[in-house]
């Protein structure tokens, strides 16, 4: 039985959802407008702004850079994040409390401060080449989401089966790949998706670390928003949105790898 919802609350919820969805509908509409400026409702329908994205080298290049940084950063973050999660779960009593607090530090530092500090100390201070600093910054942020999401998944994981594997003589590495990893798979995939979206859309850290040569898509969009107002930006925005949807939609669908084992 459901609690009866007061009509006022239903009306309020509908309004909130209109507020949430309206701007997205407007961006999509604006991206289809056959005018040289962003407007809604669209005047005439065209897909030419979507074609323009690929004609503009700046966008083509930054889309590739964004994807490369995202995938590399998440790869590194997962490789070092999963063992850390394992350590936190299994050896919690042996490790000091501040260690797990350390891994959530990124939350305490505004991303923009993190970006600026990396610029000061690493990119300029240590004279690193242009590529690694944005990668390092993204890895750090992804590490945080990886540890948080992955550590939520072994809650239901019975560590006894891991011990059983070890007591049967399996070496630790093999135990990890044949016993632990398949069991936390859902968490790992969820972490990948979350991290991918954070990375592809992330601005604050990239804002300082991108420069001539390396720029990411959101930074490019921001730069363009300041310069012109044509629908190509709306269509890039829609495209970014679709990338997110594809990243999430597939694995999260009822038959996808996350929900299926549950």
């Amino acid at each position: 039985m459901q609690m009866r919802l007061p009509p006022a609350l239903i009306v309020f919820t509908v309004l909130v959802y209109l507020f949430l969805m309206g701007p997205l509908v407007i961006v999509i509409g604006a991206s289809l407008s056959d005018t040289s400026y962003s407007t809604f409702p669209p005047k005439g329908l065209t897909l030419r702004w979507f074609e323009r994205i690929f004609e503009m080298a700046a966008f083509r290049r930054t889309i590739v850079t964004s994807l490369q940084i995202a995938v590399l950063a998440i790869g590194v973050a997962l490789v070092i994040g999963i063992p850390a999660t394992d350590a936190l779960n299994r050896y919690r009593i042996h490790l000091p409390g501040w260690l797990s607090a350390l891994y959530v530090q990124p939350v305490l530092v505004p991303e923009i401060v993190m970006g600026f500090s990396l610029l000061r100390s690493v990119a300029v201070g240590m004279d690193w080449p242009i590529w690694p600093p944005p990668l390092a910054g993204h890895t750090l942020i992804e590490l945080h989401s990886c540890i948080r999401v992955v550590s939520a998944s072994p809650v239901s994981f019975d560590f006894a089966i891991e011990e059983a594997a070890i007591s049967l003589g399996a070496p630790p590495v093999r135990t990890f790949f044949t016993v632990v990893l398949p069991n936390i798979r859902a968490g790992v995939i969820a972490a990948f998706i979350l991290a991918f979206i954070t990375s592809v859309n992330g601005v604050s850290v990239s804002l300082f670390l991108t420069g001539p040569g390396v720029s990411t898509l959101p930074i490019q969009i921001l730069a363009c928003v300041e310069q012109f107002f044509d629908p190509v930006i709306a269509s890039v925005a829609v495209r970014l949105c679709c990338t997110n949807l594809v990243a999430v939609g597939g694995p999260l669908s009822p038959d996808g790898p996350i929900l299926r084992p549950l």
Binding site: L24, N201, V203, I233, A237, L240
Partner: peptide, 8 residues
């Protein structure tokens, strides 16, 4: 993303 939602 943040950028898209602010652009709107």
């Amino acid at each position: 993303g943040v950028v898209v939602r602010s652009f709107a």
